[in-house]
Write a protein that binds this DNA or RNA. Structure first.
Length: 409
RNA sequence: GGAGAGGUUCCCGAGUGGUCAAAGGGAGCAGACUGUAAAUCUGCCGGCUAAGCCUUCGGAGGUUCAAAUCCUCCCCUCUCCA
């Protein structure tokens, strides 16, 4: 029978891991595992989806995941994978973010009856006493050893402050704390976390003479080598307020052909056989597989209803034949009086958010990338007014893919 | 604390008195081609109803008709030494 390790393996979740036999042994009984999420922003984004999905898979396999919100560790800042120290965040910011992230995770994991747990490491880290900590824990860390960690190597070139250097100790302490209090024997994380996690298993071995394990996930880049979850608009957020379900759906459907199989395995719960069938599609047919990917991914994050809406909207806008409207298309409301007067196209494009600045809008329109109700706007300052719309609504389009519905109040 | 190197537009990185809104590359955007994909080609790529004007080259002053470029002070980073 397949255990969670096999599932991870066949779905592409594993980059590195500690001893396989020991892990498989571990998974024979219900296992508690954890992943930390740093509340550096008010929302998680697509880049965190692999760890999130891994926890969800873990829960489906009958184990108990713990999501640790790093309210304490973020006070210090993880240098792993970063070329520069990031600005120190205030406690208020961090706490606020931690709250938001908690809410988001509940959409992916079932926290009923402690089937999954969520804890904040601020609860145990912020009360630590410096001298005690150094004497009881600090002594188990070899600086020589730490300096060989990949996560620090890079920073030794550009600069590493003492505060960040301590991050590894705190994360190790977390692991130890969870081991003691929740019998958590497995920590997972991105591949850049390997050093931090291994430091934790070492600490547990030294303090408790017991074994803990580690699994890391590959850093997911798109086929073009870009980190997952970044677009021209910035990060793709899981929060529907920051990235609408429609945009979220679009993000997935616009993925590179070569990424579809990998992403279906990682970001949906579809059975492997089904994924393989979908990815055997070739040429233009692969669009169908992308549609499934987009739908399923949106469903996992925003629920079935939103996924349906996003799909319907996309079909209307991009489907063959006549283009229509849908609820899910982003909408910009404006004053009726303002529109009655008429407004130059480039200003409207800027105001509605389709373009960042008026210059940007001018550029777009001059280059022939602006449309109203699918008719090209030839002059950048063409006046748009109520008569420009059909039945009181008008649909702006920037380039091939970005739409904005203008509605009047 | 001492010596050296350096901080340039989203990123990398040229530029050492005017010809600099600043080379080149990357990213991004638009157009062509397509399949809401990739690759390729072309154009754009600080802001502003724009052949002009305004704001940028770590910060603050100064020299000059004119400064990213010269001077002074300050801040920050790196390397070596203590």
């Amino acid at each position: 029978m397949k255990d969670i390790f096999d599932i991870y393996k066949e779905r592409g979740f594993i980059e590195q891991h500690t001893d396989e036999d020991a892990l498989k042994e571990l998974f024979k009984t219900q296992t508690t595992c954890y992943i930390g999420f740093d509340p550096t922003a008010s929302s998680l984004h697509v880049g965190s989806l692999v760890p999130i999905m891994s926890l969800a898979q873990m829960q489906r396999a009958g184990h108990r995941p713990i999501a640790v919100v790093g309210g304490g560790t973020t006070l210090v800042g993880d240098p792993s994978g970063k070329t520069e120290m990031r600005p120190v965040m205030t406690r208020e910011q961090i706490n606020q973010n931690a709250e938001c992230i908690k809410k988001q995770l509940s959409r992916f994991l079932d926290f009923e009856n402690d089937k999954a747990l969520m804890v904040n490491n601020a609860d145990w880290l912020t009360t630590l006493n410096y001298i005690d900590f150094l004497r009881d824990f600090g002594r188990h860390f070899s600086v020589n050893r730490m300096l060989t960690a990949e996560s620090y190597k890079m920073r030794l070139e550009t600069g590493l402050s003492f505060i960040e250097f301590n991050y590894m100790l705190l994360q190790s302490y977390d692991f130890w704390h969870l081991f003691k209090n929740y019998d958590c024997r497995l920590q997972m994380g991105g591949s850049d976390q390997w050093g931090n996690i291994i430091a934790g298993t070492d600490l547990i071995r030294r303090l408790e003479r017991d074994v803990a394990h580690c699994i890391t996930f590959p850093l997911i880049t798109t086929s073009s080598g870009i980190k997952m979850g970044k677009t021209h608009k910035g990060a793709v957020w899981l929060d529907p307020e920051l990235t609408s379900p429609y945009d979220y759906y679009q993000y997935w459907i616009n993925q590179d052909d070569n990424d579809v199989e990998r992403f279906l395995l990682l970001f949906t719960f579809l059975p492997v056989e089904e994924v393989q069938e979908l990815s055997s599609l070739e040429g233009a047919d692969i669009r169908y597989a992308k549609e499934v990917l987009a739908y399923e991914a949106t469903k996992v994050c925003h629920g079935e209803e939103e996924a349906e809406k996003a799909r319907a909207a996309a079909k209307k806008l991009f489907g063959s034949g006549n283009q229509g409207m849908s609820d899910s298309v982003p909408e910009y409301c404006m004053d009726k009086a303002e529109l009655e007067k008429g407004i130059p196209a480039f200003i409207l494009f800027e105001q509605s958010g389709l373009c960042k600045t008026r210059s940007d809008a001018r550029r777009l329109l001059t280059q022939g990338g602006g449309y109203i109700n699918n008719e090209k706007i030839d002059v950048f300052d063409q006046v748009i007014d109520l008569k420009s719309g059909k039945d009181g609504v008008m649909l702006l389009r920037a380039g091939k893919k970005r739409y904005m519905k203008i509605s009047v109040t």
